[in-house]
Amino acid sequence: MTNSPTRIDAHLTEEERHGLADDSLPPDRRADAEAHLAMCAECAGDVARLHSLMARMTQLPDTVDAELDTLWPAIRSRIERGKVVSLGGEPAARRSRRRVRQAAIVAGVAAALVLAFTLGRETRPQANVVLTPGLNTTPIVSIADSSRAYQEEVQSLLEELELRRSTMRPATAASVDRDLRIIDGAIDELTDALERDPNNPALRQLLAASYRQKRDLLKQADNAS
């Protein structure tokens, strides 16, 4: 960066041209630079072009055309997985790390079961208490138990999956089946636990979350097929 005073008869430096265009040139150098512009068509034209470019940038829309609704199921799935797996910790590994994820789901469900029993005993008078990421150990009142609604949606998606199975890549189908087995295992365990402790609100929430995971997985499979 040059700090020497601008001579009116010398062409503007790159710093001065951009500084005039974006109004960042210090005031003490601005007068000389503008005086030069008044007598030099070449520099004036260049600064005008730079200024025009920046003006066009302000016209850029804040959004670009894209269908983003399709991203939400995957985000929700990752959020829900984070809830079940770590209950306040860091998110699960990326989708591509399938083995780690499966192990985490199994371990997470086991941990969640233990925690659910504990929470159920400690918070029995309250309704629907779960932990949420970002708030760590702060118990909160969550949305109502919605296992039944998810079950109906899951059933419908399962039927669609069977119809589309023949068009899916074998690896994708195998992967979906493997994940479904893991989630079904968690659902079975939670259902058994609820039979033993039917008034445990945390267990009901975890069961609903598992069904929601299953629904999201089936939706992803539907999108992939």
């Binding site: 959020i79 970002g134 708030l135 909160i140 969550s142 949305i143």
Partner: peptide
């Protein structure tokens, strides 16, 4: 912030 995923959606 209270864990409502629908609100986050």
């Amino acid at each position: 912030q209270q864990g409502d995923v629908d609100a986050f959606e």
